[in-house]
Simulated assay, not measured.
Amino acid sequence: MTFSIPNLLSLFRLATAPLLALVFLVPENQNIANIAATALFLLAASTDFWDGFIARRINQSTSLGALLDLLADKLLIVTALLLLLDAERAPVGACIFIVGRELLMSALREWVAQNGKSSTVRVIAVGKWKTGLQMTAVPFLFYAGDLWALNTLAVGVWLLWAAAALSVWSMLSYCLALWRNE
C-alpha cells in the first residue's frame, strides 16, 4: 500500500468511524458527547475534500486511493446515521434512502467492474452535492441544540432529507447512464 498523504487522510477517515461511536455513546454527559461527535465528524469530513484535492494537486490519484476514499465516506456516513437513528435524531426514511442508495451503488459498481463498464459509473456533480449535504447535515444532527438562534436539529433534518432526495436522483442518474450504455 502506498502511504501517500491522500491515502493516509482516507485511512484516518476510516478509523474515525468507530472512534465517532465511542465519543458519542460513551460519555455520561450528552452535551460533551454532542460537541465531541460534532467536532470529530467535522474533522473527518474535511479530510474528504483534502485527500482528493492533494491527490490531484500532486498527481497521486490511484485506484487504491479512490477505493479508500469511497470506503471511508460510506463507513463514516453509515456509522453517523446509525448513531443518529439510535439517538432518534435522524428520520428513518431519509436514512433508508441514503443507505439503500449506497448499497445499491456498491452492488452496481461491482457488477459494472465485472462487466468492464467502469466508465459508466463515474462520479457526477449530483453525487458530490449529495455527499456535501450529508457531510453538512450530520454535524447539525450531532450537535442537536441551539446555535445562536438556529435550531440545529431542525436544520440537520431538513438537510438530511435534501441529501436523501439527491441520493435517489444520483442513483437514478447512474442507472440511466448505465442503461444507455448497455
Rank of each mutant, 00 (worst) to 15 (best):
T152K: 06
M135P: 00
M135D: 07
A165F: 11
L103I: 12
M105V: 15
T47Y: 12
V121T: 07
A164M: 08
L103F: 14
A113D: 05
L22Y: 15
N7R: 14
N31H: 09
L14D: 08
S167L: 01
W50S: 01
L85D: 05
I5N: 07
D48I: 06
D69K: 06
N181L: 00
T2M: 10
N29C: 03
L76H: 10
L82V: 11
A162Y: 01
L83F: 05
L84P: 02
F53V: 06
F49I: 14
I5M: 11
A21F: 12
F53S: 13
T47S: 14
L147H: 03
L67N: 04
E102L: 05
F142D: 04
L172W: 09
V112F: 01
A165G: 08
R89L: 09
A107V: 04
N7W: 03
V78C: 08
L150V: 15
L20M: 14
L14A: 08
N31W: 04
L133Y: 07
F142S: 02
I96P: 01
L64D: 03
R56N: 10
V92W: 14
Y174K: 03
N151D: 15
S167A: 14
A107Y: 04
V23P: 14
V26D: 11
N7Q: 08
D86Q: 15
L104P: 01
P27G: 05
I54S: 12
A17Q: 02
M135I: 11
A149G: 10
D48T: 06
V126T: 13
L166M: 12
C95D: 03
L81E: 03
L76T: 08
A113F: 00
M1C: 06
L82D: 06
L159W: 00
A144E: 12
S119E: 13
A164S: 07
T131L: 15
A154M: 13
L166A: 12
L133T: 11
A80L: 11
Y174L: 03
V99H: 05
T16G: 10
N59Q: 14
A55S: 10
G93D: 00
W50I: 03
L108K: 01
L25N: 06
D86F: 15
Q60D: 07
A90E: 01
I98Y: 07
L166I: 00
E102G: 05
K130L: 04
N181I: 00
V99F: 03
A55R: 05
M105S: 03
D51T: 09
L9T: 10
